[in-house]
Design a protein around this nucleic acid. Structure first.
Ligand code: FES
Ligand code: FES
Lengths: 144, 144
DNA sequence: TATTAATCGGACAAAATTGTCCGAAATAAA
DNA sequence: TTTATTTCGGACAATTTTGTCCGATTAATA
């Protein structure tokens, strides 16, 4: 469904959100440890999120990643997915035709668009804050 | 969503179904031409479907691929996807945890399972015959 | 029987994704 | 000002996915 980079990116963003709620800025090392992901590779995807203004980074000692209290609510998962994986999953054809086009649809088009629309709505309406809340109360987990 | 191999596999299977309805057995060359896919790579994928008893192959002159009139209705897309991509898409965690587990769920679990279930139902209820019918009446297409 | 046309299967090659390493730049604190 | 700690960015490496090639096998037909 999502690329590894995107999976790490979402998990990392949720962890950053959780810690930002406590006012803590977190380093790549801590993040990778807490979400069980390869450090350097995770760093790369966090840079992507930073360049897309989804999270904020601060260099130097006491530096790290954080996200504004307000932004937690504004940032929805579709922004993260789009920043990392592009919009193939939002616009692409399920059977791999060059583009999804209702005027010359593939055999699966109608049924696929249905699923894709639901996925799109779900990702577009799920905020980092919402996901971090489940974590905070110990209902959900970022690693196992 | 699906791998390239899987996309080619489904498109090929639908084309084979369409031609089998006319009593025509088709070669890999014709299939690859009609669905606009790499020949040798498509051949590999068709071997997979053959080994999984999803389509039938006949060697030698006048040989090729076909599917029984009855099987067209029995073969659902989930069988093809499972044969080629395995069951990662049916059982995997959306955020990449080792396994999807409701007892120790990732933050996206509930919402993701929802989507995944819909996808699963859709693939499990869509037959090759059904998809071939859209093609036959010129409503859908396998290449552009 | 010989020829021909098709799938099968394994080895190989190319490209994309995933992952690592290291020096540069920034900045807080001694 | 120096040192230490962090992200940044580019080069590189490993792995997986995608794609190619070719000889072996099968079977129809001349
Ligand atoms: S054309 Fe294939 S999903 Fe729309
Ligand atoms: S645990 Fe992540 S989707 Fe179920």
């Amino acid at each position: 469904m999502f690329s590894k980079a995107c999976e790490y990116g979402i998990r990392a963003a949720v962890y950053i959100t959780l810690q930002s709620l406590e006012g803590r800025r977190v380093s790549v090392n801590e993040i990778a440890e807490e979400i069980d992901s390869p450090i350097a590779f995770t760093a790369k995807t966090l840079q992507l999120l930073t360049r897309n203004d989804i999270i904020k980074s601060v260099k130097g000692p006491t530096g790290g990643f954080e996200i504004d209290r307000e932004e937690m609510n504004n940032v929805k998962l579709n922004m993260i997915v789009k920043a990392i994986d592009g919009d193939k999953i939002f616009k692409g054809c399920g059977l791999g035709l060059k583009e999804c086009n209702a005027n010359k649809p593939c055999p699966l088009h109608d049924k696929f668009v249905d699923i894709r629309t639901n996925l799109s709505k779900m990702l577009g309406s799920t905020s980092l804050y919402e996901l971090a809340m489940g974590l905070e109360v110990g209902l959900t987990f970022l690693k196992r």
